[in-house]
Design a binder for these strands. Structure first.
Lengths: 337, 337
DNA sequence: GGGGGGACTGTGACCGGTCCCAGTCTGTGA
DNA sequence: TCACAGACTGGGACCGGTCACAGTCCCCCC
C-alpha cells in the first residue's frame, strides 16, 4: 500500500510502526520479551503476524557478533564420510537440537590438507560460533591449531591429542567394550577375536583396552586386528584373523560396519553366524538391525550425545568452560551373538 | 599498539587507514579492483596483508542482500541419507565448486513434515541465495511450494512434478539404461531382470523405461521389481524375483547399492556372480569398485553434475533463467557383468 | 510531600560492509 | 583557453538489526 513497487521484506521498523511502538520494544519482544508490558507484547506479536515479518539473520549477526550457526566438522577422508552411518546419526541429532534453538548447522569437511586450510580460515573469520568436532585422529595437528585459535570446540569422543583441554562428549568406551566382551564370555565363547578401530581414535584405542582388560588371561594378542571402521577393512581384518587361526568362536568388532564385513568373509569361508562364530558390532547404527543376521551390538545414545554436544558447545560459546562428559552405552542382544 | 585492549578484528576502515586511502577504494580493490590506480591497489593489498584483514561476511550480506551461500537440500528420509553413497559424491563436488567461489554450502535435511516447514521458513528468510535440490519425489508438494515462493532452485535429475519449470542437471537416464541393457544383451543374456528405483523419481522411472525399450520383445514384466535404492531393498527385490523365476541370467539394478543387495541374495541361494547370474549396477558410487566382485555399472559424472548445478544455480540467482541440462553417463565394465 | 526504585519505552550510536554521487585531476580536441 | 570526457577517489547514506542510556510513569514508603 505504502509503496507500489516490488514488495520489500518487512523490517523491524515496519513492525514497530504497525504496532505503534518503537524498534527497541519490538526487538525486546523478539528476544524473549522481558521488560515489555503485556499490551505492547500483544500489539507487537499481532503486528508481526500481519506484516509477515521475519528477522534478518545477517543484520542480527552483524550487530551481535554471533552467527547463529555451528559447524559440524568432519575430518575424515571422503570415502569414509558417507559409509560410516554413525556420522549420519550424529548429524541428524545435531541438526534437530539446533533447529529447536532456531540455529543452523553448517557442514564442513576437512579431509585433505587444502580443505583443512579453507576450513580454518572459514572458522577463524567468524562464520560460525563454534565447532562440533567429529572423529578426530590424534596424529592430526589440525585440532591443535583450531584450539590455539581460541575457537569454541566440543569434540565427539575424547580428543586423544588434547585430552583435558577440549570439552567433549563420549561414551564410556572401555566400559562398553568390557560389557560386550563379558557378554561373549558369558555365552561360553573363549577364542574371541577383536577387530579394533584405528589406534589414534578413542573408539579404536579404548575399546581395545576394554576388550583386553575383560579378556584377562584368555587374551590372545594374535586375535587382535584393526581396521578403519569401514566394511571393507572389517572384511580384510577378518581374512587376516582366519589365516592366523581357524578356531575363533566369536568376533567383537569396534563398529557395525566392520562386523558386517567380518560376517561376509566368515560366510564365504563356509562358517555360519552365529552357530560357528558369533559376531558382535558396536554403535547400533541402523545397519545392525537390518543386517542378516541382525547384529548384537553396543548402542550409543546418539540422540543424547548430539544434544549434549550442542548444549555444551553453546555454553562454551556463551563463556562457559565445558567439560568431559561421559555417557553410557547399552548392550543390545540380537541374533548374531 | 593502537588499543591495548583485546585485539579487535581489523575492519575495512583499519585497512583504509593503513593504506592511506578511503574505505571506498579498499572496497573496490576487494571486489575486483576496477577503477583503482595501480598505486592504490598495491597499497591496499599490502595493508590487507599487514593487518591480517578478512571481510566480515555478515556485514557484506547485509549490505548486498546476498548470503554468499547455497543450500544442499536433501528431501530423503534419514535412513537413506547416509546409506546412499551418491549423495556424498554430489555433496563433495558441490562443496568444492562453491569453495572455489569463496561461497559456502549449508546442508539442509527435510525428511519429516516438520523439517520441511523449518526449511521452507529458513530459505524464505533469505539465509541462502539458492537451493540445490537433491532427489525429490514427484509426489512431494514441497518442491512446488518452494518454486512458488520464487526461490532460485536447480534440481539434480528431472523434477517429475515440475518438469519444464525448474532448471535441472541430469544424465540421460533412459539412454544410460539402454546402454547397460544392450551390454547385457550383447553378452548373450536373455532372461534379464530389472530392479528399478521408486517410480516417482526420475532415476526410477526413466531407467526402467530405457530398460523396457531396449529389451523389446524379450521383456518379461514379471522380471521387473523395484526398491528404494538401498541395499536392503535390493536384496528384498532379488528375493521376490527369485521366488518368481529361477532362470534369470542377469540382473540390472538401478543403483549400485541395490545391486550389492541382489548379489548377497544370489550368493545365499547358491548362485554364482557372474557365472550363473550377471549383475549390473548404476551410479559407479565407489561401492562398485570395492565390491566383491567389482560391479559393472553406469558411471555418473558426479564432478561435472555438481559443478554444473552450482554454476547454473548461481546464474539463476544472478537473474538467468536456467535450463534442463543433460549429461551422458558412461558404461564401466567390471567383473560382475 | 518528597525521594527512591522498579517497570517499561524511545532514541541515537553502532556493527562492517556496499553503493552511489559528487568531486578532483589530467589529457584532449575545438 | 576552455569545455569535456574519462580515470580515479572520498565520504555520506544505507542495509536491519542490537544495545546502552536516558527518560517517563507509577507506586510505595518514610
Amino acid at each position: 500500500m505504502e509503496q507500489s513497487g516490488a514488495a520489500r521484506k518487512p523490517t523491524i521498523r515496519d513492525v514497530a510502526a504497525a504496532a505503534g511502538v518503537s524498534r527497541g520494544t519490538v526487538s525486546r519482544v523478539i528476544n524473549g520479551g522481558h521488560w515489555v508490558s503485556p499490551d505492547a507484547r500483544a500489539a507487537v506479536e499481532d503486528a508481526i503476524r500481519r506484516t509477515g515479518y521475519t528477522a534478518n539473520h545477517h543484520a542480527r549477526s552483524l550487530a551481535t557478533g554471533r552467527s547463529g550457526s555451528l559447524a559440524f566438522l568432519l575430518t575424515e577422508e571422503h570415502h569414509l564420510l558417507f559409509e560410516d552411518p554413525t556420522f549420519g546419526l550424529l548429524l541428524r541429532g545435531a541438526a534437530e537440537a539446533l533447529s529447536q534453538r532456531s540455529m543452523t548447522l553448517v557442514l564442513l569437511v576437512a579431509g585433505t590438507e587444502a580443505e583443512k586450510e579453507n576450513v580454518l580460515a572459514y572458522v577463524r573469520a567468524g562464520h560460525v560460533d563454534g565447532v562440533l568436532l567429529i572423529s578426530s585422529h590424534a596424529s592430526d595437528p589440525f585440532l591443535g591449531r583450531m584450539h590455539e585459535a581460541g575457537i569454541p570446540i566440543v569434540a565427539s569422543g575424547l580428543p586423544l591429542a588434547l585430552e583435558g583441554l577440549v570439552p567433549s562428549v563420549a561414551i564410556d568406551e572401555a566400559g562398553a567394550a568390557r560389557t560386550m566382551t563379558r557378554h561373549l564370555l558369558d555365552r561360553g565363547h573363549r577364542r574371541i577375536a577383536h577387530i579394533a578401530g584405528p589406534d589414534d581414535t578413542p573408539g579404536g584405542r579404548f575399546r581395545r583396552e576394554g576388550f583386553r582388560a575383560e579378556m584377562g588371561g584368555l587374551l590372545d594378542e594374535a586375535l587382535v586386528e584393526s581396521g578403519d571402521y569401514s566394511r571393507e577393512s572389517g572384511a580384510a581384518a577378518m581374512s587376516r584373523l582366519l589365516s592366523r587361526s581357524r578356531d575363533i568362536d566369536a568376533v567383537f568388532a569396534a563398529s557395525d560396519s566392520m562386523a558386517a564385513g567380518a560376517v561376509s568373509v566368515l560366510r564365504r569361508e563356509g562358517l555360519r553366524v552365529p552357530d560357528d562364530v558369533a559376531v558382535a558390532g558396536f554403535d547400533d547404527s541402523g545397519l545392525a538391525e537390518t543386517h542378516d543376521p541382525p547384529l548384537t551390538t553396543m548402542r550409543q545414545p546418539w540422540g543424547r550425545i548430539s544434544e549434549a554436544m550442542v548444549a555444551m558447545l553453546l555454553d562454551v560459546v556463551g563463556g562457559g568452560s565445558g567439560r568431559e562428559l561421559t555417557l553410557d552405552a547399552e548392550l543390545v542382544v540380537r541374533a548374531s551373538a
